[in-house]
């Protein structure tokens, strides 16, 4: 049975169809990529699945439960977490605190215990701190913990967001352009990390512009153009699909003309 199921999802902004009738499904441990030209509706689709936007039509099912339009913090409890295309980092907090924030559901307890600094509150915080430190090491930020997050490089912040999302121990992880702005070495590290996480049984939904990476790691690819799904299948099938080639060649020519 599929873990995440998207059925006929769609939304309009001011009468303009941003996403229309998109369906796909994913199983545990699967890496599914959503690709398409700029403005194809990839991030909008992410925002609907993760509860940021209320879909105009269609259904999102998580492990069989209808979670359409459910608030992000409730989705987090059900094991869905995500990163953002245009970084959403807690700038005023340290790198370690950013990662600890991912442990919110595991570390939060009674307000009074926190106000009075009771041992129970300290214990919860300590567990979260240790877990966060391990995660930072896993994404290569083990030594940056005490820095203010705002001072990190773009690529490092991308990895910090992944660490924060992993802290929730998600079953479904949505990554919005995790390798954007990263150099070749960083991209490869992220590449490995994603494969590793998937191998642990997490279903990963990926938006990424680095086609080499997408083709290498995806089990399944969904292609969007103008908000509609124009193709889907394994990497080999999709890359031979004439509609996909047309959509991409169109943008490629435009990009060449710009350049």
């Amino acid at each position: 049975m599929s873990l995440l199921q998207v059925e006929g999802l769609g939304i309009e902004f001011g009468g303009v169809r941003a996403v229309h009738d998109v369906s796909f499904a994913m199983k545990p441990g699967e890496i599914v990529s959503v690709i398409g030209p700029n403005g194809a509706g990839k991030t909008t689709l992410f925002n609907m699945i993760s509860g940021v936007y209320l879909p105009g039509s269609g259904r999102v099912k998580l492990d069989g439960e209808d979670v359409t339009g459910m608030s992000p913090h409730l989705l987090a409890r059900r094991g869905l977490s995500r990163t953002f295309q245009n970084l959403q980092i807690f700038q005023q907090m340290t790198v370690l605190e950013n990662a600890i924030a991912g442990y919110h559901l595991q570390e939060s307890g009674h307000l009074l215990a926190d106000l009075l600094n009771l041992p129970s509150s300290r214990r919860r915080a300590q567990v979260a701190r240790e877990g966060a430190q391990k995660l930072l090491e896993r994404v290569g930020l083990g030594r940056a913990g005490e820095q203010e997050a705002g001072n990190l490089s773009y690529g490092a912040l991308k990895r910090l967001e992944i660490a924060r999302a992993l802290a929730l121990k998600p079953r479904v992880l949505l990554l919005d352009e995790p390798a954007a702005g990263c150099n070749a070495v960083e991209t490869e590290e992220i590449d490995h990390l994603i494969a590793e996480v998937a191998a642990e049984g997490v279903a990963i939904l990926l938006v990424e512009h680095d086609m080499k990476m997408v083709m290498r790691i995806s089990n399944h690819i969904v292609v969007l153009d103008h908000g509609e799904k124009i193709a889907e299948g394994d990497p080999a099938t999709v890359s031979r699909n004439p509609d996909v080639i047309a959509a991409y060649l169109g943008t490629q020519e435009a990009a060449d003309a710009d350049g």
Binding site: P72, F84, I89, A101, H104, G109, L111, A125
Partner: peptide
Amino acid sequence: LALNLFNSPTGRALRALHGSEIAARTVGV
């Protein structure tokens, strides 16, 4: 009390929603 709160799980969640409300929600706040 206020200083206790600052470094506690609740204080961290508060500062998180200050930094980015949407990101705070996605980590379950």
